[in-house]
C-alpha cells in the first residue's frame, strides 16, 4: 500500500532554467497537494503530459527527493522518517537509471543483491526466476557495454526487482522500448499485480493507461485533476475513450487556472 497525502514540491530554478522557461520566478512548483492511494494487487497510473509532475511524485515516493510538505507512507514506513526501510520495500524503474557498462549481468545482479542485504542463496534463487523471465541467461556473461538497449533495459528491470519488492514504481514503462520488449514489460507488470504487489506507473500514453491501469490519477499542472477507474473517468466526463476524457478534464483545469 502507498499513501500519498498532500505532498508539494518546489524546485529552485537556475538562471539558465529561468531563461529556458521564459520566467523570472526563482522557484517552480512541481507538484502541489497531491493525494492518492495505491493498493496491493492493483496498478495505479499517473497520467499526464510531460512536465506535469509525474516523475517528481515518483521520485518522492522512491526517496530520491523529499517533498517540502505532506507525507508518504509505503507499506507502513514513512518516506521522510525511514527512507532506508522504504527503499528496501520498493523499486523504481526508469529509463534514467542505467547499469554500469563495465560489468556483466551476472556480476551486477549479485552486486545489487548484496547491497539489498541478500545472501548468496537468496540471490541465486531470484536470479534463476528473473533471468529466466526476461531471457537474460543468454547474455548473462556479456558486459553491459556490449549489450543492446533492449538487453540493458531487461537487465535494469531484473536488477531493480532483485530483492522481490512489495512496491513497484515504473516511470514511463514503455518509453524507448521496441514493441516486443514493451509487451514483455507490460505483461510482467500484470503478473506482479497478480502476485499482490502494489504497482504505480507514470505515463503520457493513453493506450498504456487504458490497458494496464486499474485506477488512474490525471495529473495536470502539478495537481491531481481527476481520479478513478477508466469507467469512472469516462462516466464523469461523458467521453467515449480516455483520450477524450483526458482532454475534457485538461481543458476544464486550464480554464479554472486562468
Amino acid at each position: 500500500m502507498i499513501e500519498v497525502k498532500n505532498i508539494s514540491k518546489t524546485f529552485k530554478l537556475s538562471k539558465k532554467q529561468r531563461t529556458l522557461d521564459g520566467t523570472k520566478n526563482k522557484f517552480k512548483i512541481a507538484v502541489e497537494n497531491i493525494t492518492f492511494k495505491a493498493k496491493p494487487g492493483e496498478i495505479y497510473g499517473l497520467l499526464g503530459p510531460n512536465g506535469a509532475g509525474k516523475t517528481t511524485v515518483l521520485r518522492c515516493i522512491a526517496t530520491l527527493i523529499k517533498p517540502d510538505k505532506g507525507s508518504i507512507i509505503v507499506d507502513g514506513s514513512s518516506v521522510l522518517e525511514d527512507s532506508r526501510e522504504v527503499r528496501s520495500k520498493l523499486c523504481l524503474l526508469t529509463n534514467e537509471l542505467k547499469v554500469d557498462p563495465n560489468f556483466t549481468a551476472e556480476y551486477l545482479f549479485g552486486f545489487f543483491g548484496r547491497l539489498y542485504g541478500m545472501n548468496d542463496s537468496e540471490i541465486l534463487k531470484r536470479k534463476k526466476i528473473l533471468f529466466e523471465e526476461f531471457g537474460i541467461d543468454e547474455f548473462a556473461d556479456v558486459k553491459t557495454s556490449d549489450m543492446s538497449s533492449g538487453m540493458k533495459q531487461k537487465l535494469s528491470i531484473a536488477i531493480s526487482l532483485v530483492h522481490d519488492p512489495k512496491v513497484i514504481i515504473f516511470d514511463e514503462p514503455t518509453n524507448g522500448l521496441d514493441v516486443i520488449t514493451a509487451r514483455a514489460v507490460t505483461d510482467y507488470l500484470k503478473k506482479l499485480r497478480g502476485e499482490g504487489k502494489t504497482v504505480i506507473i507514470s505515463t503520457h500514453i493513453m493506450t498504456v493507461a487504458e490497458k494496464l491501469c486499474d485506477r488512474i490519477g490525471l495529473i495536470i499542472e502539478g495537481g491531481i485533476a481527476a481520479e478513478g477507474t477508466l469507467n469512472e473517468l469516462l462516466e464523469k466526463t461523458g467521453a467515449a475513450d480516455l483520450d477524450d476524457a483526458f482532454f475534457s478534464i485538461y481543458k476544464k483545469t486550464r480554464e479554472n487556472v486562468s
Binding site: T63, R84, E85, L97, K98, V99, D100, P101, L115, S160
Partner: peptide
C-alpha cells in the same frame, strides 16, 4: 562519471546508507 552515466542513481535507490 557515474553521475554522468546515471549509474549512481541505481545505487542510491538501494537501502545502503
Amino acid at each position: 562519471g557515474e553521475k554522468e552515466r546515471g549509474t549512481i542513481a541505481t545505487m542510491l535507490l538501494t537501502p545502503v546508507k
